[in-house]
């Protein structure tokens, strides 16, 4: 999955299937006080590309994913899908229109499947609403998608609780795929799974990307897995994008001090590497995203903070071809 490289020289923003422009999502927590969950994200996702989105809990990566599929209204900014601007607030007809194209896989395979529906009902619900399937071909189609994700057609009359975590996640994937979408937002699809099962799900997503030409936004906090899965990697901190670039560039040659600390904190399954590594530990914690002060959001924890960082917002700009960051060090 790593071979596709979107960093074509000269074009910072390749024409993407999904163009996110200065997207903001604010929640009003009390009168006049806003939580800036997503605060001005610009990202272009190319066709048949896997973009990995990482960041610590509370950085807004899940909110971004949910805003993209219309589960949250957009506070400002726009999302353009194949040249068409998505509505900032989805009406039910918009869901019907766009959910065929952009689907979502959820983190928790336990709470994201209705316990009172059989697998057949879960998978067929979307296509039946969209009148894609005739009622006499439902069994055949459900069987097809179950086989596609490595389950068996015999499983369609069972309920979600009869399956293991990895199998449930496959059902969630089959449900998303049954509509034959072009884009899938994967919100931590493997975080709840055991190591041996994570590889099953990741390999499946990779295979589907190759064979079905899918575009994936892969949201996760496991840096090693995101590097493995993604063509490009995007790093978020406190609602804003701090770095975007080819996955290997971002992982092995990170530009932003936050990305550097994040990768330095990622323990690797290799005792010799771990022994030789200097454990630079990032101080402090992610501050509250309510009523943010001006200046770089990372300034308070940044080992390289300068005076300018305290007052001026860094501009997100391209530093190396296809590799952008928002940091005054590269201004």
């Amino acid at each position: 999955m790593n071979n596709q490289n979107s960093s074509t020289p000269g074009s910072t923003l390749p024409k993407g299937i999904l163009e996110i422009r200065n997207l903001k999502k604010h929640f009003e927590v009390s009168k006049g006080s806003f939580l800036h969950a997503v605060d001005g994200i610009t990202l272009s996702i190319g066709k048949n590309e896997v973009v990995g989105l990482v960041g610590e809990s509370g950085c807004g990566k899940s909110t971004l994913g949910r805003t993209l599929v219309g589960l949250y209204d957009k506070s400002s900014g726009e999302v353009v899908y194949q040249g068409e601007k998505l509505p900032s607030r989805y009406a039910s007809s918009d869901f019907k229109k766009y959910s065929r194209e952009i689907q979502m896989i959820f983190q928790d395979p336990y709470s994201s499947l209705n316990p009172r529906m059989t697998v057949r009902e879960i998978i067929a619900e979307g296509p039946m609403i969209h009148k894609l399937w005739k009622s006499d071909e439902v069994n055949e189609k459900v069987g097809f998608w179950l086989k596609r994700v490595g389950l068996s057609a015999d499983h369609m009359s069972r309920y979600a609780h009869e399956f293991s975590g990895g199998q449930r996640q496959r059902i969630g994937i089959a449900r998303a795929l049954a509509l034959e979408p072009k884009v899938i937002i994967c919100d931590e699809p493997i975080s709840a799974l055991d190591v041996s099962v994570q590889a099953q799900v990741v390999n499946l997503l990779g295979e589907l990307k190759r064979t079905m030409g899918l575009t994936l936004l892969f949201i996760a906090h496991d840096l090693s897995m995101v590097r493995y899965v993604s063509d490009r990697m995007a790093v978020m901190y406190l609602g804003s994008m701090v770095e975007v670039g080819p996955a290997n560039e971002v992982y092995f040659r990170p530009l932003h001090p936050y990305t550097q600390s994040l990768i330095a904190s990622n323990p690797e399954p290799d005792p010799e590497k771990e022994r030789s590594r200097t454990h630079t530990v990032l101080k402090g914690e992610i501050p509250s995203p309510i009523n943010l002060k001006p200046g770089c959001r990372f300034a308070g924890r940044c080992p390289k903070a300068m005076t300018v960082c305290q007052s001026v917002d860094p501009v997100f700009r391209e530093v190396k071809p296809g590799h952008s960051t928002a940091c005054h060090l590269y201004a």
Partner: peptide
């Protein structure tokens, strides 16, 4: 060994294919 093969390694030169442990 199966657990190790199912996990990505951060080595830029080598591209490793993850081998899941099938079954439960």
């Amino acid at each position: 060994l199966g657990l190790r093969s199912a996990m990505p390694e951060n080595d830029e030169e080598k591209s490793k294919v993850l081998i899941p442990i099938e079954g439960a």
